[in-house]
Design a binder for these strands. Structure first.
Length: 547
RNA sequence: GCGCCCGUAGCUCAAAGGAUAGAGCGUUCGACUUCGGAUCGAAAGGUUGGGGGUUCGAGUCCCUCCGGGCGCACCA
C-alpha cells in the first residue's frame, strides 16, 4: 500500500466515510505539505459540524502514520501531511534501482495493443503522423510501466483511391516508383488532377478498381515497387523516432475480412442509393455504389485481425480528432457485429498541428512534412551539438530534434490543436524537450565526475527534505496518473517541474563539496538522473548522456 | 442547421471542484574565478470570451450568448 492509499484509508476511518470519497491531493505549494485533504470542509455540513471542529476531530484520531512526519491544520480546514525523512530516503533508494523506478502493477497480466502513426504508403509522412507517433509511443510505454504486455501496431492504407492517384501520377509523369520523393510528387499530381478533371477522375477510378482485382500487370508492378519503397522509407523514420512496431496491418488485408463481416449482417448494413450503409449516430457508407469497401468496412476487419494475432484486453487506436465521428459510428456498428470485441476497443484522439504563421495547405505547397520538420530541427541543433561533449554530434542533434518535437506535442493536453511555432521550437530553451535532456545530461555529468574523484553516493535517512527530494517522491504517482488517463502530458508537466527543481537546487548547491554531505547529495543527483531517464523514456524522448 | 472539441498573461501552454490562477518565450534588470550558462534569480504582465446558476469554495460543473477548430453519404 502506498502512503497515499494509506492516508486515504485512515482519513476515511476517522471521518467515518468511505475511502473512495476522500479527496487527497498534492498542494499547489510545497509549504502546504506533500499531501493535503479538504474532507473536513466537504463533509462538515453533512455531519452538522463546523469545518474546523471536524478537522480537529479527524486529526486527533489520526495519531502516527508511517512515512508521515507532521500533520497540520490550515486554511478553512485543510489537513496537510508532511512526508517523513525516511519516506523521502526510501524513494531515493528505490529510484537508484533504476529499472523498477516508476513502475506499478495495475495492469499486470493484461494484454494491450496500441495502434498509432498509420501513415499511408504512396503518400508523405506528414505532421499528423508525427503527432500520432509521439502520443502512441508514449501511451504504449506508459502502459508498459503498469505491468501490461503491450504490442505496438501500425495500420497502413495500401489500397484505395489515394494509391490509384499516386499510380496514375507515376504513369503520367514517368516517375520512378523506387524513389520516395517521386512517389510524393506522383500523389500530389494525381490528387489535384482528380479534382480538376473529370476524365482523369474516371481513369483513376478505373485504376483503383483494377488494383483491387490485381488484374493489370503493369499497374501491379508499379504498385508493388511503390509500396515497398514507401514502407522501407517509413522504417527509416521510425528508427529516428524510436518506434519499433510489433504488428503491421494493411488495408489490403483488412478489406476482405471486413467485407465478410458486412456481408454476413444484411440486417445491420442496409442498401441506400446503391451503396451499403449503416445508420448509427449518423449514417456512414460501408460499401460504395461501385461495390468497393470503404475505410469503415476495413476497420471492422482490422479489429478481427488484431484480436486474432494478439487476444487483447484493450485495443487503443490513436488518431487525429477529425476521425472521432467516424470512430463513433464504427464502434456503434461493431457492438452489433463483433459484440465480444467492441467493449475492448478504445479510440483516443488528438488535435491538429497548425502553424503559427497561418494554415498549412498542400495545394499551395505551404506544408511541413514530418520529415522536413525533423530535418530542420536537426539542422538547428547541429551547431551546438558540434561544440558539445558528445562523441557523435550528428546523433545528438537528431536526438535533440526528436526531443524538441515530441515534447511540444506531449506537453499539451489532447483535444486541442497544437500551434506549432517554428521559432519557438528551434530555440531549444526553457519549456522544451532539450531542457529536460540537458538536466539529465547534467546529472549524468556530475555522476561521472564523482566516479573520477572516487566519491561514493549514499542516502542519508536523516537528510533535510528539499523541494527536489519531495518532488522525486511523486514520480511513480505522476506515471500512474498519466497511464491511467492515457495522457502523456500529465507526465510531461511533472517532469518539467521536476527538472526545474533540480536546476534550481543545482544552482544553489555544490554537490561534490568535499564534505561528508556530498554522499547524500550525490545519491539525490543519481535519483534525479534515473527519474529523468525513465521519465524521458516514457515520453519516447531520447536521453543523451552528454550534450 | 446538427454533433464533438476549444476559448486562461503580448505569444505558446499548465492548473483531481480547493489555499495568493502557474510555467516558458518575449520585455527589463541581475548571477557563480565553482560539479556542464541549452542554467539560475528578480521585475512587469490576468475581471480565466460575456452573462446567469449550483457549491462552504468555480478557470474547472449546469444554462445561455459570442468567437474559433473539426466532423456530418459513397475519401482515408
Amino acid at each position: 500500500m502506498t502512503i497515499a492509499e494509506d492516508l486515504k484509508k485512515r482519513i476515511a476511518d476517522a471521518a467515518r466515510i468511505s475511502s473512495a470519497e476522500v479527496t487527497l491531493e498534492h498542494p499547489a505549494e510545497l509549504k502546504n505539505g506533500d499531501y493535503s485533504s479538504p474532507v473536513a470542509i466537504q463533509y462538515a455540513k453533512k455531519l452538522g459540524k463546523k469545518p474546523r471542529d471536524l478537522t480537529e476531530e479527524i486529526v486527533a484520531k489520526l495519531r502516527t502514520i508511517e512515512g508521515v512526519d507532521k500533520i497540520e491544520v490550515a486554511g478553512a480546514g485543510f489537513i496537510n501531511f508532511y512526508l517523513a525523512r525516511s519516506a523521502l530516503a526510501k524513494a531515493m533508494e528505490e529510484a537508484r534501482l533504476e529499472t523498477t523506478w516508476g513502475r506499478n502493477d495495475t495492469n499486470k497480466d493484461k494484454k494491450m495493443m496500441v495502434e498509432y502513426t498509420d501513415p499511408n504508403p504512396f503518400k508523405e509522412f506528414h505532421i499528423g503522423h508525427l503527432m500520432s507517433n509521439a502520443i502512441g509511443e508514449s501511451v504504449a510505454r506508459l502502459t508498459e510501466f503498469t505491468g501490461a504486455e503491450v504490442k505496438r501496431a501500425n495500420y497502413q492504407g495500401d489500397v484505395g483511391p489515394h494509391v490509384a492517384k499516386a499510380i496514375w501520377g507515376l504513369k503520367k509523369l514517368g516517375l520512378n516508383a523506387a524513389d520516395p520523393t517521386d512517389l510524393g510528387k506522383a500523389y500530389v499530381a494525381g490528387a489535384s488532377a482528380y479534382e480538376d478533371d473529370a476524365n482523369v477522375r474516371a481513369e483513376i477510378d478505373a485504376i483503383n478498381a483494377k488494383l483491387y482485382e490485381r488484374s493489370d500487370d503493369e499497374l501491379n508492378k508499379l504498385y508493388d515497387v511503390g509500396r515497398k519503397t514507401s514502407l522501407a522509407h517509413f522504417e527509416e523514420i521510425y528508427k529516428v523516432l524510436g518506434t519499433k512496431f510489433d504488428h503491421y496491418f494493411f488495408e489490403s488485408e483488412a478489406a476482405p475480412k471486413g467485407m465478410e463481416i458486412v456481408g454476413a449482417h444484411p440486417d445491420v448494413f442496409v442498401k441506400s442509393e446503391g451503396a451499403i450503409v449503416y445508420h448509427g449516430p449518423h449514417t456512414r457508407v460501408f460499401f460504395t455504389a461501385k461495390g468497393l469497401p470503404t475505410y469503415e468496412t476495413k476497420e471492422l476487419g482490422l479489429a478481427l485481425m488484431k484480436a486474432k494475432e494478439f487476444p487483447f484486453d484493450l485495443s487503443i487506436t490513436v488518431t487525429a480528432h477529425e476521425q472521432s465521428g467516424y470512430f463513433e459510428v464504427v464502434l456503434d456498428a461493431m457492438k452489433k457485429v463483433l459484440p465480444e470485441l467492441a467493449p475492448k476497443v478504445k479510440h483516443i484522439s488528438h488535435g491538429m498541428m497548425r502553424l503559427a504563421s497561418g494554415k498549412m495547405s498542400s495545394r499551395t505547397g505551404d506544408v511541413i512534412t514530418g520529415e522536413s520538420l525533423l530535418r530542420d530541427l536537426t539542422e538547428a541543433a547541429r551547431g551546438r551539438a558540434k561544440e558539445s561533449r558528445a562523441e557523435d554530434p550528428e546523433k545528438l542533434s537528431q536526438d535533440i530534434a526528436v526531443g524538441a518535437i515530441k515534447y511540444q506535442i506531449l506537453k499539451q493536453a489532447s483535444g486541442r490543436d497544437i500551434i506549432f511555432d517554428r521559432e519557438r521550437a528551434l530555440s531549444l530553451e526553457g519549456d522544451s524537450g532539450p531542457y529536460l535532456q540537458y538536466a539529465h545530461a547534467r546529472a549524468h555529468g556530475v555522476m561521472e565526475k564523482a566516479r573520477e574523484q572516487n566519491v561514493a553516493a549514499a542516502v542519508d535517512k536523516n537528510a533535510e527534505p528539499t523541494g527536489l527530494s519531495r518532488l522525486l517522491h511523486r514520480f511513480p504517482e505522476a506515471v500512474a496518473k498519466a497511464a491511467q488517463e492515457l495522457e502523456p502530458h500529465l507526465l510531461t508537466n511533472y517532469l518539467l517541474e521536476f527538472a526545474s527543481a533540480f536546476n534550481r537546487w543545482y544552482a544553489n548547491e555544490q554537490i561534490l563539496d568535499g564534505t561528508p554531505a556530498a554522499a547524500h547529495k550525490l545519491a539525490l543527483t543519481d535519483a534525479v538522473r534515473v527519474t529523468l531517464k525513465n521519465g524521458l523514456w516514457l515520453l519516447g524522448i531520447p536521453a543523451p548522456e552528454k550534450m
